[in-house]
Design a protein around this nucleic acid. Sequence first.
RNA 1: UCCCCGGUAGCUCAGCUGGUUAGAGCGGGUGACUGUUAAUCACUAGGUCGUUGGUUCGAAUCCGACCCGGGGAGCCA
Length: 484
Amino acid sequence: MIYYSGPAAKFQTQTSINMPEASIQTILAGEVPTGSPLTIRGWVRTRRDSKAGFSFIQVNDGSTLHNLQVVADQSLPNYASEIRHLTSGCSVRCTGTLVESKGRGQSVELQAAEIQVLGWVEDPDTYPVQPKHHSFEFLRSVAHLRPRTNTFGAVTRVRHATARAIHDYFDRNGYYWVNTPIVTASDAEGAGELFRVSTLDLANLARDEEGNVDFRQDFFGRETFLTVSGQLNVEAFCLAMSKVYTFGPTFRAEKSNTARHLAEFWMVEPEVAFAGLDELGTLAEDFLKSVFTSVLERSADDMAFFVERIESEAVSRLEKLIASPFVRMDYSEAIRILQRSGTRFDYKPEWGLDLQTEHERYLTEQHCQAPVIVMNYPAEIKAFYMRLNDDGQTVAAMDVLAPGIGEIIGGSQREERLEVLRSRMDTEQLESGRYEWFLDLRRYGTVPHAGFGLGFERLLNYITGLTNIRDVIPYPRTPGNAPF
RNA sequence: UCCCCGGUAGCUCAGCUGGUUAGAGCGGGUGACUGUUAAUCACUAGGUCGUUGGUUCGAAUCCGACCCGGGGAGCCA
């Protein structure tokens, strides 16, 4: 399969109204004829000298994985004084003529008539980003400089392309993007520990008559937190706009220190009115396939890089997923399959218990060898807002499991029946006063509806083949770690 | 939070059955050489071996504590 990205190149040309210098992406895409005068700006990756009287400078401007080779001749006035001292990381403005390359490895190069050094690297000896392999661990410690590496440049472009594919998908299908609040008063959305938002003086806390912290004196006049999910808020818009989604930051104060968890991450949550669990499964499948197809088309260069340097299966597994129908099965059936598998699991599969990572991997990687949608989980292990099935034991929840990554989507049909929802909230001992507005949605024109949550960074891990979630977000926030 | 593993030059690592001045590659500097491709070759600078106690004639190496990081688990997206 071959992917080209013509439309993206045209888009770049239009933006050149404000930026007369062509991007390296457009130059290498062949949009600038050889013989043209040309100016580029960017950062030096490497410099190779020839004593015969010129230097080759690889310049990258972030518009593409690839560098443009700038040929600097000794006749340039600052050749000996400046150009011969360029090191990785220096910023330059290069003006000259685009010519066919006399060397192998690139079709065109810039024959420089002028090279202006915009910014030197203060101490080249200690500049952290070198043209060599760095550990991801080290690069995390220089999160402000890692965008200058091939890998993080590619991640940044693919992250953008994926976000755009998500918005495009929903736009094409009649969904509205709803910006749900970051600050919330819901303290028990059932999705994990919350970060408190407060302007109270921690050194001198306001107290009420009983000696408890008096949140009436806090900024919002009540206890508030950072959101752990936009779902509850977006449901209200779903029951007016029919098809909506959130795409924004989400916060969990869980002290989980794993390659799959962030304290601050981005989540995509579509919510569809008049839909049930089956339609939701269909949406999840169509959504993933569409987004993957779009990223493969638009980010072919960067994906090829991931295949070469990060994960050789990065492209083929997306293509495979796009081509395979997702397998659907009930939770009860999944438990039976696991119990009869003859595989020895660390945790025994048992009806009523949640599926462990090892169980999910068996189902999707061994048994089905395809993405699996597991549906209808026991009510006790799922959230209060999920719709109770007629059997009274299970809820209309689903998890989409993908080979090689596990759970990528979790969702459910929502409980739209007022009395059933109220009784489930009682069972979970939720403070009903805080959810009256949520119950209103069931009082006034309630309809069946369903939605799911997708971890954006987990999706990026799956796409890029990078295995640590901290390497697909610009500035990762994890327990004990927010230095940038 | 639990279980493992690790912290040695700017980076990637070796050295760790304790023994004289701690090594390599890359990166930096200098020089040589070539339309070069993470160029090549030579020379050169650069480290209080995470911190802190202890064992010992002697600790990067052994032991304890602490700090930091990574992997796995749980929880989840």
